[in-house]
């Protein structure tokens, strides 16, 4: 499994780590990584530093997470994007919906 998460309850932050290809096959594990957390209660940090690919369904999954986290700015941060992943996020203009670190 290439998706894992850490809960930093002190900072009300959930870190989701994604490794390898981030595509539709990760739909369930990705959702499982946040759905037991009350909507809108914490901030999320999606760490893509070990993800080497991201497709449009992954963009969709990020939108679902954004909805779960609460759509106001700053609730979901995406960290450690590789050049390729960053390019896809930029083309989709997702820098307006998420904080890209």
């Amino acid at each position: 499994m290439s998706i894992s998460r850490q809960v930093d309850s002190g900072n009300a932050l959930v870190i989701i780590n994604i490794e390898g290809r981030f595509d539709f096959s990760e739909h369930r594990p990705f959702r499982d990584a946040y759905r037991d957390i009350a909507p809108g209660s914490v901030r999320f940090l999606v760490d893509l530093s070990r993800a080497d690919y991201l497709d449009s369904s992954a963009l969709g999954m990020l939108l679902l997470l954004r909805e779960h986290a609460g759509t106001d700015a700053g609730r979901v941060t995406i960290r450690g994007c590789t050049e390729d992943v960053l390019r896809i996020l930029r083309i989709a203009n997702f820098d307006r919906l998420f904080i890209l670190e």
Binding site: L63, R90, I91, A92, N93, F94, L97
Partner: peptide, 25 residues
């Protein structure tokens, strides 16, 4: 959210890069 559109004109190629969010978000 689409790849660059390409305009081919007498002086070369001009790129029309994605500037907007995809539709329906």
């Amino acid at each position: 959210g689409m790849p660059d559109g390409l305009v081919c004109h007498a002086e070369g190629i001009h790129r029309l890069a994605s500037h907007a969010l995809p539709l329906g978000i």
